[in-house]
């Protein structure tokens, strides 16, 4: 059996012999990124609220649009919670460190 064929499916980044030099990331720090992401999540939550209200009022033309908006907000919030959990984990890990 020809095994070499499998190589075709390996992502290009892995096939590169020399690792590319990482350039220093300029610009915004982690805090800025987090703040922006939180704002986006907040926006989705507001949209979801609006969708729920218009659904209750019977103003919605497509029910699926309202539900998708709500689902997106829920998923975004879930992701936010996961990021928060990771942050707290990292913080606790550091605070437990022996000096």
């Amino acid at each position: 059996m020809e095994v070499r064929q499998v190589n075709d499916f390996i992502p290009l980044a892995w096939q590169q012999k020399e690792p590319q030099k990482t350039t220093a990331v300029q610009g915004e720090g982690f805090g800025e990124v987090l703040k922006r992401a939180l704002n986006e999540v907040n926006e989705l939550q507001l949209k979801s609220q609006q969708a729920a209200v218009s659904l209750a009022l019977g103003e919605v033309k497509d029910v699926h649009q309202a539900l998708i908006t709500m689902e997106q907000a829920r998923l975004a919030l879930e992701l936010t919670v996961q990021v928060r959990n990771k942050l707290i984990d990292a913080y606790q890990e550091i605070s437990r460190m022996q000096i």
Binding site: I68, E71, Q72
Partner: peptide, 12 residues
């Protein structure tokens, strides 16, 4: 949510 938007367009 790209895939979601595509499916939403299909639903509409």
């Amino acid at each position: 949510f790209q895939a979601m938007q595509v499916s939403a367009s299909g639903l509409t």
